[in-house]
Simulated scan of single mutants.
Amino acid sequence: MTEDSPGDGRGDGPGGGARRERPAGDWRELNRENWDDRVRVHAASAFYDLPGFRAGASTLRPFERAELGEVAGRRLLHLQCHMGQDTLSWARLGAEVTGLDFSAPAIAQARALARDTGLADRSRFVVGDVYEAQDALPGESFDIVYTGLGALVWLPELPRWARIVAGLLAPGGVLYLAEFHPLSDLLGEDGRSVEVDYFAEEPRREDYPHTYTDGPPLEKTRHVEFPHSLGEVVTSLARAGLRIEFLHEHPETLFPRYPVLRRTPEGTYVFPPGHPRVPLMFSLRAAKPAAG
Rank of each mutant, 00 (worst) to 15 (best):
M1A: 04
D8F: 10
G13R: 07
G15V: 09
G16C: 05
G17C: 09
A18S: 05
R19Y: 14
A24N: 12
E29H: 09
E29W: 00
N31C: 14
N31Y: 13
N34V: 04
W35F: 04
R38M: 02
V39I: 13
V41Y: 08
A43D: 12
A44I: 08
A44S: 07
Y48T: 06
A57H: 05
L60H: 00
P62I: 12
E64M: 06
E67L: 15
A72R: 04
A72H: 02
R74N: 12
R75F: 11
R75D: 13
L76T: 05
L77G: 12
H78G: 12
Q80E: 11
C81K: 03
S89T: 07
A95Q: 02
V97E: 00
L100S: 12
L100P: 02
F102D: 14
F102K: 12
A104L: 07
A104R: 10
A106W: 11
A108G: 07
Q109P: 14
A112W: 06
L113M: 04
L113K: 08
R115E: 10
R115S: 09
D116V: 03
D116I: 01
G118Y: 07
D121V: 06
D129K: 12
Q134I: 13
P138K: 06
P138V: 00
S141N: 08
F142L: 09
D143I: 04
G150Q: 13
L158K: 08
L158S: 10
V165W: 10
G172Q: 10
G173E: 02
L175S: 01
E179W: 14
G188C: 08
R192I: 00
V194T: 12
E195C: 13
Y208Q: 06
Y208H: 09
P209I: 14
G215P: 13
L218R: 08
L218Q: 08
E219M: 07
E219I: 15
S229Y: 07
S229K: 00
S229F: 05
S229W: 05
G231H: 01
E232V: 01
V234E: 00
A240D: 03
R243N: 02
R243E: 06
R243C: 09
R243K: 11
E249W: 00
E249C: 12
H250E: 11
P251F: 05
R257L: 15
Y258V: 04
V260F: 08
R263T: 01
T264H: 05
V270L: 03
V270F: 05
F271P: 08
P272Y: 08
G274D: 13
P276H: 10
P276N: 07
L284W: 01
A287Q: 15
K288D: 00
A290V: 14
